[in-house]
């Protein structure tokens, strides 16, 4: 390529007016071994551009996703083992309890009437105690009374 044209292109290049095709022409010119001496110092610039385009994003995103999968598997396995252990533990424990506490120890009633009476007794005891509790809360009403005295509606 004739030198005049290259010089012209270089000028255009620095004015930001070259097209991509023209810039490529410059690149090929400057990567060739025969560059005019007065243009030699631009050589490194264009060679740098070519070189810089080769840098690659090396740690592939694939690696990360690959690393994740076995971790999930491990977690799954661990939780399964834990779950199985828990199940067997509960199972045997439950069994042991069932065996130790037989129906006789719970004091079952023979007839339904008896059972009904006992239940009523138990409920009455409970409700009387609830009423005791209520009595002690009654004094809160005093606040209400004094409030009414002060703020007459």
């Amino acid at each position: 390529m004739e030198l005049a044209k290259i010089e012209q292109l270089v000028e255009k290049y620095f004015d930001g007016e070259t097209t991509l095709a023209e810039e490529n022409e410059l690149r090929t010119y400057f990567s060739s071994p025969r560059v005019a001496p007065h243009l030699e110092h631009y050589q490194s610039l264009f060679q740098f551009f070519v070189k810089e385009k080769e840098a690659q994003f090396s740690p592939s995103i694939l690696q990360k996703t690959k690393n994740k999968k076995p971790m999930i598997g491990l977690g799954l396995a661990a939780s399964m083992v834990l779950f199985a252990g828990l199940l067997t533990f509960l199972h045997f424990n439950g069994k042991a309890q069932n065996e130790s506490v037989s129906t006789a120890d719970l004091g079952q009633f023979e007839s339904p009437e008896e059972a009904f009476e006992e239940t009523q007794k138990a409920l009455a005891l409970l409700s009387s105690n609830v009423n005791v509790g209520m009595k002690s809360v009654n004094y809160i009403n005093e606040y209400q009374n004094s409030k009414k005295l002060i703020f007459k509606k």
Binding site: Y13, F14, D15, G16
Partner: peptide, 12 residues
């Protein structure tokens, strides 16, 4: 374009 030209000239 203006910025590019400015940058290239600065490098030069």
């Amino acid at each position: 374009r203006v910025n590019l030209s400015r940058a290239r000239k600065m490098i030069r």
